[in-house]
Amino acid sequence: MPVISFILLGSVVLLPAVALWALRWATAAGQFRCPDKAALLPFDESEPVGVETDLILGGNRR
């Protein structure tokens, strides 16, 4: 089954290559450099850290 062999060999070579490329790119682009900043990414000027969103139900407030 040559078709299968090509697909298998291709993916065996290609996938780790893509993973390594992603890791290399991430390191080069400084994605691992400032984790403190990365952790703040979900927040912006209109909803900064400390603003709770979605507390829409009554609940028991302290």
Partner: peptide
């Protein structure tokens, strides 16, 4: 109250 702790995320 929720002033980010300096070590949070770090």
């Amino acid at each position: 109250r929720e002033k980010p702790d300096p070590v949070e995320g770090f």
